[in-house]
Design a protein around this nucleic acid. Sequence first.
DNA 1: CTTGCAAGCGGAACCAGTTCCGCTTACTGT
DNA 2: ACAGTAAGCGGAACTGGTTCCGCTTGCAAG
Lengths: 194, 194
Amino acid sequence: MTSNGERQARRPRSLRADAQRNEDRLLEAAAAAFAREGAGASVKDIARAAGVGVGTLYRRFPSKELLIEAIYRHEVQRLCDSAPHLAATRPPVDALRTWMEAFIDFMTAKDGMADALRVVLSDDGDKMHTRALLADAIAHLLAAGEERSPARSEVDAQDVLMALGGISLMASSEGRRDLATRLIGMLLRGIVKS
Amino acid sequence: MTSNGERQARRPRSLRADAQRNEDRLLEAAAAAFAREGAGASVKDIARAAGVGVGTLYRRFPSKELLIEAIYRHEVQRLCDSAPHLAATRPPVDALRTWMEAFIDFMTAKDGMADALRVVLSDDGDKMHTRALLADAIAHLLAAGEERSPARSEVDAQDVLMALGGISLMASSEGRRDLATRLIGMLLRGIVKS
DNA sequence: CTTGCAAGCGGAACCAGTTCCGCTTACTGT
DNA sequence: ACAGTAAGCGGAACTGGTTCCGCTTGCAAG
């Protein structure tokens, strides 16, 4: 399930062999736990299932939220990768709306991910990567609109990302998906040129 | 500092005398603690300062967030009360924007209040009161606009409240007040008639 | 091989919030 | 006054995340 070579390749972090093995086991155990019990799964249980102490888990993932983020990193990546295609094949506003809906679907489906956003979107260090990824995807969609008219030029991708984050937070704690759709509607009207 | 009669009057809850005294002490201690240490103040300390056990605190305020909400209830009330006056004395969009800024100022100034929002805005039981209060204030501002043109009629006050909640959450965890102002700008453009 | 030591490890300890339940006490009716 | 009882109380105990630190070990360099 977990390819060692691939991980090595991504960033030459030169972890000690055992450390690398532990990280893999942790990710595996955490993914299983979150899938089974949702974000409620306890870090102690995850550490135990991975056969390591909590200390080990915490050196690799400094908080539960960052662990969650690590688990879903691939899927966030995929979500972001889908933006250019959308921008190329659909009318700008349509593309933007579709992507936003996908964003919300993702954030509300993966239990705990919406809360992890607060950490991920806050600005320092490692998390910046994911944050930038998301902002770029949005920037792409906004830019596509700008040429063909719909997006206001003064709108900033970071701001839109924050707005989406807020919507995710509310939608996930209320558990009402339709609310999110309506809020996206408002947001879009606030973004596109009048 | 705490008027017994007033509290009695608000809702004839007929608490046992000692229970009432404890509630007053708790509110007093909690207000002091939050003012001094922010939302980080521990419930145990608050209970101790009030001279009661934690169990007592929890029977009256089933969670820390609800305690926070109780502390700031008066101020939320005042915020809501200010809406009609704004609506009467300013151009609709202006009134709405001003109120929203005040909302955010409040939520970001009172440490922990933004997080309490998630509980307060979620729909069940007692909290409904505060939620309805806020929604009414917004409805008032929206209605004022409707007559004189600016607000889209299909916009729902509850939705706007949720949007504001989301913005508060993001702004408070980012600690960047200017972000909130820009997001309010977007929201407004999404609300008023094109 | 040996050895030095940074890197890594485990898990006890800490500190939140929250729950539970046996004891106490303010009130009510007599 | 007094007793019966529901309402209220306290705080130990539980659960979760997070920190800390003394011990272990993979991995060169000699």
